[in-house]
Computed example of a mutant assay.
Amino acid sequence: MKYLFLSAILTLSPFASVAESYDCTTTDFGFGGFVVSRIILAFDAEATVGFAYDAFINEVHKASIPVKFKKWSDNRYQFNWTLKGVKSSNVGTSTLSYKVTLRPQSGTFTLSGVYHGYDNPISGAGTCKLIKK
């Protein structure tokens, strides 16, 4: 099932056209939730484009989304995105903003986020495996 998920994501546009893709596993360090256990990140550093996919993105968009992407160095890439309409048990739907910093050489990443309208911290970190180069 794991490989079916990955192959489906990688063959769907826009992931098929990117240079590198990573499958990331997350540990939640915040108290507010909204940190998924798995994120797929993809980018083309030369074209300065990035994409992300996780359970919340799937809930809202049903596919990967383009994200703001910045290459800080050959070993530090930043992905930013905002999701509107994520289901929340407290208020119906919520708006969430995320920032992920990927360090491919060490296979690690950090995640921080904002649950708009609330003080709940969103933070996590984890490891990433290269799945396409």
Rank of each mutant, 00 (worst) to 15 (best):
F34R: 01
E20Y: 15
S94C: 00
V49M: 06
H61A: 05
M1S: 15
L12P: 04
Y22A: 03
L130I: 12
L6N: 11
S7C: 06
T82I: 04
S88V: 00
A19G: 10
A19F: 13
E46Y: 08
W72T: 12
G117C: 01
C24T: 06
F31C: 08
H61N: 08
F5K: 12
G85D: 07
F51M: 06
S88M: 00
R76K: 15
Q105N: 12
Y115I: 03
E46M: 06
Y53A: 04
R103E: 13
T93I: 12
T25A: 10
P14G: 07
Y77W: 11
D28Q: 06
I40A: 10
T108Y: 07
V60T: 03
S7P: 01
V36H: 02
L102R: 11
G85R: 05
S89K: 00
Y53R: 08
D119R: 12
P121D: 15
F109G: 11
Y53K: 08
K99S: 15
Y98L: 06
K87A: 04
T27I: 05
Q105W: 08
H116R: 02
S64T: 14
A19W: 11
A55F: 12
D23C: 09
Y115P: 02
F69L: 03
L41N: 03
F56E: 00
S97H: 05
G107I: 13
F15H: 02
S17L: 05
C24P: 04
C24S: 02
T101V: 15
L111V: 11
V35N: 07
T110V: 15
K71Q: 14
Y22H: 10
G50Q: 08
C24W: 03
L6G: 09
G85S: 12
S123G: 09
D54N: 15
Y53I: 12
F29G: 08
A55C: 05
V91A: 03
A63Q: 15
Y3L: 10
